[in-house]
Every structure is written in structure tokens, then in C-alpha cells.
């Protein structure tokens, strides 16, 4: 008996190529809206001291968020971590558990709100107007045959969609070759 080869699919960005244009966030909003999910972006372009790239769910194989979810809204699926928005109770346990800051509680804004007072930026933790906030994380655009919208729209090709088929040549082989080369060229010669 052999175990099935199981690596979760995930989206990740290359900070050397990313120009921080946030087109991915706009596409993410549009995709979630279109698929009837909570219309908020699921990846956030994060600007740090050392560089800029979008940050999103890594779909960890042994995901802390799915392990900690008290109601089973976050579940281990075949090749990703699934979120069932309708049963999420907004307890924020997943936000605490996530080591990447890639899952957060959000609510959609109400059409009746006076936006000049910007409550839409206030909804994250608790809402003044009683909208229930729920966990939001990358769902790899489940339901869209074309795959993750962010990867499709990225103008510089900084976002990669990795699955068990392409993980070797997209992420590993080149670096492995480089490591071997540097070992042969430098480390071996200096021994």
C-alpha cells in the first residue's frame, strides 16, 4: 500500500518581481463577489521594510487554523484548507493560530451606511452596525475553472499557483541545481 502524494495547492508571490500594484487585490474582490462569497480581498499586498508582496493563506498541510476551529468551519480537504463561511461563528481563533497573518475576520459593509465616517474600515473585529464578521482567507477561487484570479491578472507574473504537479519545477529544481552547483564549484574546491 502506498500513501497518495498529497501536497496542498497554494498561491505564493515572488517579492523580487512584485511591484506592489494591488491588481491582485482588486481581482480577488471581484472574484469573491462573483462567486457569492464575502466580497473582500483575501490577499493583502504587504509593504515591509525589506520588500513588498501580497500575503495570503499558505494552505498548510497540517493547518493550525483547521486544527483550532471549534465549529469545523475550516476543514482539511483533499488539496487545500476549505472554509465554510456559513457556519463560521467569527471567534477569531484561526486569526490567533495562523503563523502568517493570512486569515482575518471581516464583514461586508451595509449599503445604508454613511461612508464619510468610514465605518467600512472599522468592521474588522466588531461591528457598530451588527454585521457578523467571519473568517476570510484565500480559497484558491474554488468554483472558478480558470484557477486563482490573482495569478491570472498579475501584470509582472509575480504570483505563482503551486500544486503537487508543478511544485518541483516551479519552486525546487532550479534552487536545488544552484545549490549543487555552488557546492561543486566552491565548497568542494575549498575542502
Amino acid at each position: 500500500m502506498s500513501l497518495p502524494k498529497r501536497v496542498n495547492k497554494f498561491v505564493v508571490a515572488d517579492p523580487n518581481v512584485c511591484i506592489g500594484c494591488a491588481t491582485c487585490m482588486a481581482a480577488c474582490y471581484e472574484s469573491s463577489h462573483k462567486r457569492g462569497k464575502l466580497a473582500v480581498p483575501r490577499l493583502i499586498v504587504t509593504r515591509s521594510k525589506s520588500g513588498t508582496m501580497p500575503n495570503q493563506c499558505r494552505q498548510c498541510d497540517d493547518a493550525p487554523c483547521a486544527n483550532v476551529c471549534p465549529v469545523g468551519a475550516l476543514r482539511f480537504a483533499d488539496d487545500n484548507i476549505e472554509l465554510f463561511e456559513e457556519i463560521c461563528i467569527g471567534c477569531k481563533m484561526c486569526t490567533l493560530a495562523c503563523p502568517f497573518g493570512a486569515i482575518r475576520a471581516e464583514a461586508e459593509i451595509m449599503p445604508s451606511v454613511n461612508y464619510a465616517m468610514e465605518p467600512k474600515y472599522n468592521l474588522a473585529i466588531e461591528s457598530e452596525i451588527g454585521a457578523k464578521s467571519i473568517a476570510v482567507k484565500c480559497d484558491l477561487c474554488a468554483g472558478d475553472d480558470n484557477g486563482p484570479a490573482c495569478v491570472q491578472v498579475c501584470p509582472t507574473g509575480a504570483l505563482l499557483f503551486i500544486d503537487s504537479q508543478n511544485i518541483d519545477y516551479k519552486l525546487i529544481n532550479q534552487k536545488a541545481e544552484g545549490a549543487v552547483e555552488s557546492f561543486v564549484n566552491t565548497a568542494l574546491r575549498t575542502i
Partner: peptide, 14 residues
């Protein structure tokens, strides 16, 4: 006026 930009990309606001 563009929702994906105003509510999607720009989550920070002013």
C-alpha cells in the same frame, strides 16, 4: 467609483 479598487485593493482608506 470602481468597487474592486475602492473596496478590494484599497482596504486601508485615507
Amino acid at each position: 467609483e470602481c468597487k474592486p479598487l475602492e473596496m478590494g485593493a484599497d482596504i486601508m482608506g485615507p
